[in-house]
Design a protein around this nucleic acid. Structure first.
Length: 997
DNA sequence: CCTCTGCTGAGAGGA
């Protein structure tokens, strides 16, 4: 087997072994393993006494705990653990969920979802934790905390979702307070605290035996709440409700009691002391091993105030880790690579137990996954009929097709962005690539800025802090995660970077780290884990047995033709007619058509916005018209910037709206319209919140922002999705559930959704919903009148993509040329340069500069033009960096160098498009330039002048570019035959570029 | 051979 590049192995206590081979025998399994990249030398690991059923395969990464003798590991009944794929951290709740049903646990990791009647539990936790933090369990304090929770924005949102009143919640919450107070007075604050008997199991040397001893434990302090733990040693993660300081008095010793730290798990439900609850505690003791090495944990039932000790045996830990391994196995093998096609892997078996399955939140997904089984048992068939009976074959096909695509993509994203495992990356290598700052020590007091926002300042120590300060890739506002440097306290807190300089770093964190004053910290970029769960949850929702889902299924899966009404007067309210007519005045013909089509639609409309045709203006106008008619509108797009662009326009027309989303990403001028800001004006009751959510006809957010509570109840007349041709189907689907009709705006001749996995792309994952629905021509309106490019530049795109359908909006647009105030002087300088240096004939530059040549292709600059009017585009990042380096001088500040993708939706007066590729030799071509759509975007960004640089011979091998070159040749727009950079020595090139500006 | 935007999260309980 060959080791993939992203796999990191290690020996020692935090070992990571690669499984080279697996040998099965009766009652045992033998692994050939290696922790060297060359896979040599190898060691062996013998699994027995139940461990042999571990679903470990060749090519897996494992971590081993226990003993090894001369390169032989033994994992058996009473000693040793094997952790399969230890770098996939699995949460404590997932594992304890898997006890009842492994299938449910696997589905729970793939799809998010769950029942929603847990609000009371969350709030009781909050109150307890607040009291623990304040070290005050008096009834006054508890009452105050309960009152705060009832008015806190977080829970108001949840109450809105559930539709429960504040009064109801208050009653439930208050019921708990006496037992909280009681618990504290008995166990914590009393002078003679109540003790808990604890049977501690000491593994004994004698084979097969454990010594049991009775110890007495008292809680002395509650030192932390919601501690976040990542344990790459056991492949676990979780949040510990309360971290408790305890005293343990051992039996038969007169020594003073021992101080220890135990995890304390709170439960608000029935006092079941169930396996699930106890397992959760055991998992917390395991994952906090590096921190506190707790031999036991505590389980506190807040309804009654009774506390149970949980002292795990080796067997308890063994069985839970085995469950973890099975879960990890299923998550890592969600697709099966066939000869040339991948397939969805089977999940663990269905239980079909009436009792367990009845309330399972994964019921539908469970059934959908199984719907392709050829010969289901009677039980399973009944279950499938019950869950999926409302779905036709094509619906099941659509679901499983997209499920496969999303999982394929998720696998690729996982391996490509392997940065996630910060515990495997040394400080040195992470600092070098700029994703980390190390050697930090807490300085000054931690300042609480708000609930859950703590400002920390760290002092940079260590040998050469200044060196890494300069090339530190972290910038203000970046998301970061804080850990200790020894790998004991991984992922202590997350937050945002405020400031980095040579001597210190400051950041706001979600937790107060002042108790770790002596720890040496590291700070890593937290690029964020955005998996496929939104995609999959949307897909699953599309399959639900309800009206909204059925309507969308018919339109999207069955491709039922969209319907329209015939008469505008029936939709236009009489009193809005005049306003609408007024708004329509500023529009051109196709734009007016688009408005009409939307108003007549009963299902959906697709607006094709060719380059420069005023998509944003059109959407803005559409929103104004809909609002004037009294319709509510959900306005979305894939990116925050696209959403805000429309809102900035709407704001100018004094259209009111509510903007949802994280303030960090929202345009400053739009911030006053965010929920957070409006709330500051006073939202204390559920009624206030309901009014806030219902006040505006227009609500705006990104397609991913649909987890907001508002969408659990509010519905809209229209949903508008901008950038729709760049959004993948499962994401685009999301907002559509909340509106009766929708409008997709985009252009599938421009960039498609980004898909990283090649197989997923070839199976059609880059087909947007916009493109899928375009088969219904009657739903499509084309905006083909553009106000960006002059006649010649437009002709390129027309010949490449639009068959001449693109038109100039006015003669002014068509004839607009670049203005170069100092052209004459530059031309004369060039002339004299050519005369004095005949070997460097620059007449081609003179020719290229002429505004009267609006489109030039240089086989293989600028006079009096503002740098901000100039854009440089290159398809590759690396190339951008090179060009950027050449344009470092202040003369060019404001000149933007960027990729094609980043330029989509924007324009500049003059665009220099660099195609330069150095590989003239045979070999395979890059993927990027093969895409017609990307080329189309690139050539339609310039308003007045488009300058393209590249080697025609190389480029002719890309079919789209070849077609472009043919057109250029026909129109005589190619000006030179040599690589222009070769014409000049680098220094001359540099001065020349500055001269042009 | 390479283009990159989305986003808190683990857990909150009840049959």
């Amino acid at each position: 087997s060959k080791l993939p590049d992203h796999v990191i192995l290690s020996g020692g206590p935090n070992n990571r072994y690669w499984v080279v081979d697996v040998e099965d025998g009766p009652g045992y399994k033998k692994l050939i393993i290696s922790c060297s990249r060359t896979l040599h030398p190898t060691e062996t690991c013998l699994l027995k006494d139940g461990w042999e059923t571990t679903p470990v395969r060749r090519g897996d990464v494992v971590h081993l705990e226990g003993r090894s003798d001369a390169g032989t590991w033994l994992v058996e009944r009473d000693q040793g653990f094997l952790v399969l794929q230890p770098d996939s951290l699995i949460s404590g709740t997932s594992i304890s969920n898997s006890i009842r049903c492994m299938r449910r646990a696997v589905l729970g990791e793939i799809f998010d979802g769950g029942s929603k009647q847990m609000l009371n539990g969350t709030m009781v936790h909050e109150v307890f934790q607040g009291a623990a933090k304040a070290k005050d369990f008096s009834s006054e304090k508890l009452f105050k905390l309960a009152d705060e929770a009832l008015h806190s924005p977080r829970y108001l949102g949840d109450m809105y979702t559930l539709g429960v009143s504040q009064e109801e919640m208050k009653q439930e919450l208050l019921d708990y307070l006496p037992s909280l107070e009681n618990w504290a007075s008995e166990y914590l604050s009393s002078s003679k605290p109540k003790s808990i008997g604890l049977k501690i199991l000491n593994p004994s040397r004698a084979p097969g035996g454990c010594q049991e001893s009775n110890a007495v434990v008292t809680v002395t302090d509650l030192t932390d709440i919601e501690e976040n733990v990542w344990s790459p040693r056991f492949g676990l993660k979780g949040k510990i409700d309360v971290t408790a300081q305890v005293q343990i008095q051992r039996p038969r010793t007169s020594r003073s009691p021992e101080e220890k730290t135990f995890p304390l798990e709170l439960k608000t439900g029935r006092e079941s002391n169930s396996i699930e609850h106890r397992s959760q505690v055991i998992l917390y003791t395991l994952m906090s091993m590096e921190r506190y090495n707790p031999e036991a944990g505590l389980l506190l039932y807040l309804k009654t105030g009774s506390m149970h000790p949980v002292a795990p045996s080796h067997m308890d830990r063994r069985e839970l880790l085995k469950l973890r391994n099975t879960l990890a196995h299923h998550l890592h093998n969600s697709v099966e690579k066939g000869a040339d096609l991948s397939n969805l892997q089977r999940l663990p078996d269905i239980l079909t137990s009436r009792q367990t399955c009845q309330y399972c939140p994964q019921k539908l997904n469970c059934a959908l996954y199984e719907s392709f089984t050829l010969y289901p048992s009677d039980d399973v068939r009944d279950f499938l009929q019950q869950e999926c009976g409302h779905l036709a074959q094509q619906h099941l096909n659509y679901f499983s097709h997209w499920l496969l695509l999303c999982i394929l993509e998720a696998v690729t994203m996982e391996t490509k962005n392997s940065r996630k495992h910060i515990w495997l990356q040394s400080i040195e290598s992470s600092e070098k690539n700029g994703s980390c700052v190390g050697n930090l020590q807490l300085k000054d007091a931690v300042a609480a800025q708000a609930e859950d926002v703590f400002l920390h300042r760290f002092q940079r120590t260590g040998s050469a802090p200044s060196q890494s300060a300069t090339n530190c890739g972290l910038t203000n506002g970046d998301r970061i995660v804080v850990s200790d440097q020894d790998g004991r306290l991984v992922g202590l807190a997350t937050g945002y970077l405020c400031e980095v300089d040579k001597t210190s770093v400051s950041c706001t964190l979600s937790r107060d780290l002042s108790k770790f004053r002596d720890v040496l910290f590291r700070l890593d970029a937290d690029e964020g884990v955005v998996g496929m769960s939104t995609h999959l949850t949307n897909l699953s929702r599309l399959m639900e047995n309800c009206q909204d889902s059925e309507r969308l299924r018919k339109l999207i899966v069955d491709l039922r033709p969209p319907e329209f009404i015939f008469n505008l007067s029936s939709v236009l309210p009489r009193d809005a007619k005049e306003t609408v007519a007024d708004i329509l005045k500023g529009l051109n013909k196709p734009q007016k058509q688009a408005m009409k089509k939307v108003l007549l639609s009963k299902d959906y409309t697709l607006i094709v916005g060719m380059p420069g045709t005023g998509k944003t203006t059109t959407i803005c106008t559409l929103v104004r018209i809909l609002q004037a008619c009294g319709f509510s509108v959900l306005l979305t797009s894939y990116t925050h910037s696209a959403v805000d662009n429309i809102l900035l326009k709407l704001k100018r027309f004094r259209v009111g709206f509510l903007r949802l989303g994280q303030g960090q990403k929202i345009h400053p001028d739009i911030l006053p319209y965010t929920e957070e800001n409006v709330r500051k004006k006073g939202v204390h009751t559920l009624l206030d919140l309901e009014q806030l959510y219902n006040k505006e006809l227009v609500v705006a957010t990104t397609c991913m922002g649909i987890k907001h509570p508002i969408f659990t109840r509010r519905r809209f007349d229209y949903c508008i999705v901008d950038e729709a041709s760049q959004i993948s189907q499962p994401i685009c689907l999301g907002p559509l559930f909340y509106a009766h009709r929708f409008v997709l705006v985009g252009d599938h001749q421009q960039l498609p959704p980004i898909v990283q996995n090649k197989e997923a792309r070839s199976l059609g994952m880059d087909e947007s919903l916009f493109k899928r629905l375009e088969v219904h021509g009657e739903a499509v309106v084309q905006l083909n009148v553009q106000y960006r490019m002059n006649r010649q530049i437009m002709s390129l795109s027309n010949s490449l993509m639009y068959d001449g359908r693109l038109e100039c909006g006015s003669e002014r647009t068509a004839a607009a040329l670049l203005t170069l105030p100092s052209l004459a002087s530059v031309q004369s300088e060039l002339r004299s340069h050519s005369e004095t240096h005949p070997q460097h004939d620059l007449s081609w530059v003179q020719f290229t500069l002429l505004p009267s040549n609006p489109v030039c292709f240089l086989d293989c600059s600028l006079a009096g033009c503002r740098p901000s009017d100039v854009g440089v585009i290159a398809p590759y990042r690396q190339q951008l960096k090179t060009i950027q380096a050449l344009l470092q001088s202040p003369t060019f500040s404001g000149l933007e160098v960027n990729t094609v993708d980043k330029y989509q939706g924007r324009d500049k007066s003059l665009i220099v498009l660099s195609f330069v590729r150095s590989n003239t030799e045979e070999g395979h071509l890059g993927e990027l330039l093969k895409d017609w759509r990307r080329l189309n975007v690139a050539i339609t960004r310039a308003k007045h002048k488009l300058l393209m640089v590249g080697s025609a011979v190389t480029l002719r091998r890309f079919p789209p570019v070849e077609k472009l070159l043919d057109h250029l040749q026909q129109e005589d727009m190619i000006s030179f035959k040599k690589n222009w950079l070769d014409l000049l020595p680098p220094a001359a090139h540099r001065s020349l570029s500055s001269m042009f500006l």
